[in-house]
Design a protein around this nucleic acid. Structure first.
Length: 419
RNA sequence: GCGAGCUUAGCUCAGCUGGUUAGAGCACCAGAUUGUGGCUCUGGGGGUCACGGGUUCGAAUCCCGUAGCUCGCCCCA
């Protein structure tokens, strides 16, 4: 037996109804907010991600599926989608047509990590990007799109964590102050955090190590080091969230793992998920366009939701979408009658009625059994009597009653009953 | 990359401190029911006990190794 690659999962017919539900909700709410879908390649030149996500991040360091193609070019399976969106917006010059873009995407991503609950090597994200506005209103519009989706999915228990990382200048200044503070007690930090001191000090704020947490408790807060512009943006964003009745938890040590964020960052957490409790997150990335070499800065904000994690939440809430069953099963007792079976099925399908029948030449009893199991509403029986009299017998599989009608009347009866 | 746990029928699992033909429920197939599902009853098929080695008179059971899965750490959706 060949099994699937570690960290990949087959989505079987049984589970697909919940996926359909999630996908249609995403599409519907995106439309309500005026966002348009964009579909991008599964792989990009490696530099797309190196340049944006940040050389110091784990994603770039150890989690990317990177390979050389036959032309010797370094290619990477996308580990996230914001970078691809920005690349595409620049390449296709989308900002020339409209200075404000509302875009959403959906699809598989790839990260080479050890799988655990809610974490796979191939997984799916929905994301939305609002490109071209630096106003706090844009932040709130984006967050409110996320919340509308979450609510319509039926997720009622979740927290929205909120923080501001400030603009580049503030962040740089704060980073220095934080490093100075932490260096004083570096020997008490966990091994990982000691390494992060040079590499990515802000991440220490996120540490789960109890000793680190103790030290972080008294560390300087970024809020106290935001410059005028950054503070104003953050305060205004919070005011707007309040006025929209969006509840959030201010979390000064919320950092997020991608280097391109600035100002507003946020994250959605669920109590249903175990260790990987975040099912969505995002933030503002005002400096990313210029990092890509675009002619000017373009302010933008976006977020992504983890589809597998959302499905875990819905399943642990007991959400069971209805399976889509065929409506009619045609049973017959002689192979010669198959031409008739094909004719009936063709007529029903032309009338939008999902129809199946036996393809294993099994007994009538076995066929009715299969009909029952497949959840149809009607079984049509084509036996010797029916063929002789040019009739069809129709068995109602819900109440067990059965009637016989001349062929075309029987067909009409089924079509009308299933309308 | 690091740590812990698990692996017995298609699925969920039982199998006591090693003891003879390895079990149950569900699922599947057939019959009771001469063209007719669900409920009930009866019967049936299906297992290299993850793989490899070791200890022993004897291993699903104990020991070692390998693989896979799961859950954590790291990180993130």
């Amino acid at each position: 037996m060949i099994n699937s690659v570690r960290g990949t999962k087959d989505i079987l017919p049984e589970e697909l109804p919940i996926w359909y539900f999630v996908e249609s909700t995403l599409r519907k709410v995106s439309q309500l907010y005026g966002f348009r879908e964009i579909r991008l390649p599964i792989f990009e030149k490696t530099e797309v991600f190196q340049r944006s996500i940040g050389e110091a991040t784990d994603i770039v360091n150890k989690e990317m599926y990177t390979f050389l193609d036959r032309g010797g070019e370094s290619i990477t399976l996308r580990p996230e989608l914001t970078a691809s969106v920005v690349r595409s917006v620049i390449m296709n010059n989308l900002l020339a047509e409209s200075p404000l873009l509302r875009l959403w995407y959906y699809g598989p991503l790839f990260r080479y990590e050890r799988p655990q609950k809610g974490r796979l090597r191939q997984f799916h994200q929905y994301g939305a990007e609002l490109i071209g506005s630096n106003n706090p209103e844009a932040d709130v519009e984006t967050i409110s799109l996320a919340i509308e989706i979450i609510k319509r999915l039926g997720i009622n228990e979740f927290s929205l964590l909120l923080n501001s990382l400030g603009n580049q200048k503030s962040r740089q200044r704060y980073k220095q102050i934080l490093v100075d503070y932490l260096k004083g007690q570096a020997q008490n930090l966990s091994k990982e955090s000691q390494e992060r001191l040079n590499r990515n000090p802000l991440r220490i704020l996120d540490s789960k190590d109890p000793q680190d947490i103790e030290i972080i408790k008294n560390s300087p807060l970024i809020h106290d080091y935001l410059d005028e512009e950054s503070r104003e943006h953050y305060v205004k964003t919070k005011e707007l969230l309040d006025s929209c009745n969006i509840k959030y938890i201010e979390t000064p040590n919320l950092v997020r793992g991608l280097d391109y964020y600035s100002h507003t960052v946020f994250e959605f957490q669920s109590p249903y998920l175990g260790a990987q409790d975040s099912f969505g997150g995002g933030g503002r990335y005002n400096e990313l366009f210029s990092q890509f070499g675009y002619k000017n800065d373009v302010p933008a904000i976006g977020f992504a939701l983890g589809i597998e994690r959302i499905i875990l939440i819905l399943q642990s809430q007991g959400f069971k979408p209805q399976r889509e069953n065929p409506k009619v099963y045609i049973a017959y007792n002689k192979p010669e009658y198959l031409t008739k079976v094909f004719e009936v099925s063709r007529i029903l399908r032309q009338n939008e009625i999902p129809t199946i029948f036996d393809l294993q030449k099994r007994s009538l009893k076995a066929q009715l059994k299969e009909a029952n199991k497949s959840g149809v509403i009607f079984a049509i029986i084509i036996g010797d009597d029916e063929v002789a009299n040019e009739t069809l017998s129709i068995k109602n599989m819900i109440d067990g009653t059965q009637v016989s009608h001349p062929f075309s009347i029987a067909i009409d009866y089924i079509i009308n009953s299933l309308k």
